[in-house]
Design a protein around this nucleic acid. Structure first.
Length: 601
RNA sequence: GCGCGGUGGGGGAGCGGCCGUCCCCGCGAGCCUCAUGAGCUCGAGACCGUGGGUUCGAAUCCCACCCGCGCACCA
């Protein structure tokens, strides 16, 4: 297929909040789909910039820090490192995974705030706020509980009563108390800045209405939100967050920018930081100020509003303006907002506090990353909520990954390695030989088209169907029988099968990067398909040293093409790609582990 | 109230005629034996949530109801 000119693709991945380790539901939502998409586009020859980082400001981190007896900064440092390691171990190929506590991020956030303020999109309003009596900080509604004035339920939250379902205001609660320390909250007038969302209503409605490719849930939900927009606060009474860049707030420790506001700006600030780190400080503009670039955002469905309404409003309001933008070309709006539904755990909602959870690092301490990536793609919540069960995980691993793909690789390589030692020299190809190769080659088109459209489940299913197709070919051609009396023909069949496996390795590489690398090596290639990922320290020149997750993926760029495996290439000693799991022991052990955690919680 | 969904035993796709069709499993039978007891072939199994309607024709469009999930000042 003729390749069009390379496109610049921004893969903007939701920022995991650093108040604790992330669980597999989180990475099912933002991480794995985004990584599959980014890896595919690199293979396709496009210039990918995949950015994200840990989201480290706000009340929940202060609360968690308090509980742990450390400062917010210390807690954020600790959790950021844990999350960074988890994402690396899962093989999420960020070009830059940074943090919101960097100088660069604060600078970019302040520029956005300042510019929106100067252009009149920031309003100042008096509101009645709830404060912790002990710390004086803003107490978010969900951290206040008390007796519901409607149904008398004693543990109603400040925003809603879980018993009768009515929306509440924290001032409605009878005997309100802080969920953090039990003290009664103090209500008082406070001044905050608000983002004037209604100012963008018409432009948002027109822009969202014109979208053709968004998933229906995202588009309809967003259109509905736009009908009823209210100004939204962008500051809080805290001392942990980005400082408000206005003269009257200089040196003041009582107000900060609201964490959600700085978190969404991370997509931009991380791109700016990436450009700085790579030594081409303006390179980020190739994505952000380039109308030809594609901007793709990945998140769980609970985050849609920020990406389809609020962040676009901020971008529209900022326009070309500000110190960072430079005043000439407006910043690009999202092209697609890929929101994933929710994953549940053995029929229950994930809940860290109730022990219904499986953390990424815990999972990866016992199982390999590719089976998890496989499960989360083939059985994940792409279009509707789905349930993670251990028995289904084991089944998918054993009956699909091991039996179809792992076995194909193993039987093909074993036959070839044992009988020939290297890729056999083929004779003339038969019709069946050419047919199977043509079908696999066509996969680069079909799987690629599905990936373009973010249909990950279908794309992986298609690639797996091709593996089944090659299994059929191998069964029919039976090279193990041929080798006894027609060595030439056996060699031809194995040559065809090896080429098919080599192509499938590429087709599966976005989904299963670790095992595709293994196949690459077994086939006798040197070097890496992509990566490796690395954690390294940057920012020393800016007096702001911090660790980031990054990697060099240049080797994979443009290799989305059918195999050209040369005859004569030495094969390595085959070994199984995936571990088969014992259903009984795994399911029993994991369910017991979950029950123990739930009992402790 | 609004949005998304409800498809053989499990999980999904299909979203006006080719459809009760397709995919991954499970189940039954057979073939093969190179391969991690893996692979290949054939078969049984469904009132497409329920009730209405539109249409020459509906899983697919409309209405009502039932069930599940979600719904911004939480991050």
């Amino acid at each position: 297929m003729p390749d069009p000119a390379p496109r610049n693709i921004l893969v903007a991945v939701a920022w995991p909040y650093a108040n604790g380790p992330r669980h597999i539901g989180h990475v099912a939502g933002f991480g794995v789909p985004a990584d599959v998409f980014a890896r595919y586009h690199r293979l396709r020859g496009n210039r990918v910039l995949m950015v994200s980082g840990t989201d480290e400001h706000g009340t929940p981190i202060m609360v968690a820090a308090d509980r742990a007896g450390v400062s917010p900064r210390e807690l954020a440092d600790r959790m950021s490192a844990v999350i960074r390691n988890d994402l690396r171990d899962l093989g999420l190929s960020y070009d830059l995974f940074t943090r919101t506590t960097t100088k660069n991020h604060h600078r970019v956030t302040q520029d956005l705030f300042r510019t929106l303020y100067d252009k009149g999109y920031v309003l100042e309003r008096e509101t009645l706020g709830a404060f912790s009596a002990t710390t004086g900080h803003t107490l978010p509604d969900r951290y206040i509980e008390g007796t519901c004035p409607i149904c008398g339920y004693p543990e109603a939250r400040g925003d809603q009563c879980d018993n009768c379902g009515n929306q509440l205001d924290p001032t409605d609660l009878i005997e309100p108390r802080s969920k953090i320390d039990g003290s009664p909250p103090v209500f008082r007038e406070t001044t905050h800045f608000f983002l004037d969302l209604p100012a963008f209503k018409e432009r948002l409605a027109e822009w969202i209405g014109a979208q053709r490719d968004w998933r229906p849930n995202v588009k309809n939900f967003s259109l509905r939100l736009v009908e009823d927009l209210k100004p939204r606060p962008i500051t809080r009474d805290l001392d942990w967050g980005v400082r408000i860049p206005l003269p009257e707030f200089e040196g003041r420790d009582d107000k900060r920018i609201y964490v959600w506001f700085d978190a969404v700006i991370g997509y931009l600030s991380a791109a700016v930081e990436w450009a700085h780190v790579t030594g081409e400080p303006d390179a980020w503009r190739d994505w952000w100020q380039n109308p030809e670039a594609g901007h793709y955002y990945f998140m769980g469905k609970d985050n849609i509003v920020f990406h389809s309404v609020i962040w676009p409003s901020m971008l529209m309001g900022y326009g070309a303006g500000g110190e960072v933008g430079g005043g000439e070309v407006p910043l690009e709006l999202p092209d697609d907002i890929v929101a994933t539904e929710f994953l549940t755990m053995e029929g229950r909602k994930f809940s860290s506090s109730r022990g219904v959870v499986i953390y990424v690092n815990d999972f990866l301490s016992r199982y390999d990353p590719d089976p998890l990536r496989y499960f989360l793609t083939i059985a994940g919540p792409e279009n509707q909520d789905t349930d993670f069960t251990w028995s289904e995980f084991v089944r998918r691993n054993n009956d699909e990954l091991v039996a179809t793909w792992g076995n194909l690789v193993n039987r093909t390589l074993t036959n070839a390695h044992r009988n020939f030692g290297s890729v056999p020299e083929p004779g003339e190809l038969s019709e069946a030989d050419r047919a199977v190769l043509a079908e696999v080659d066509a996969g680069f088109e079909t799987v690629g088209d599905l990936l373009e459209r973010a249909s990950f489940k279908a794309a992986l299913g298609e690639a797996m169907a091709l593996a089944t197709r090659v299994n059929q070919y191998v069964s029919e051609a039976a090279p193990w029988a041929l080798v006894k009396d027609d060595r030439q023909r056996a060699g031809t069949v194995l040559f065809v099968a090896l080429r098919a496996v080599d192509s499938l390795k590429t087709l599966l590489a976005p989904f299963l990067p670790f095992s595709s690398q293994a196949v690459h090596e077994l086939l006798g290639y040197e070097g890496r398909l992509a990566g490796p990922l690395e954690i390294r320290e940057v920012g020393a020149d800016d007096d702001d040293p911090h660790e980031v997750l990054t990697g060099d993926y240049a080797s994979s760029v443009g290799s989305w093409t059918p195999s050209a495996l040369p005859a004569g290439q030495e094969l390595r000693e085959p070994r199984p790609l995936f571990a088969k799991l014992d259903p009984d022991t795994v399911v029993e052990a994991e369910l017991a582990r979950m029950e123990t955690a739930a009992d402790l919680a």
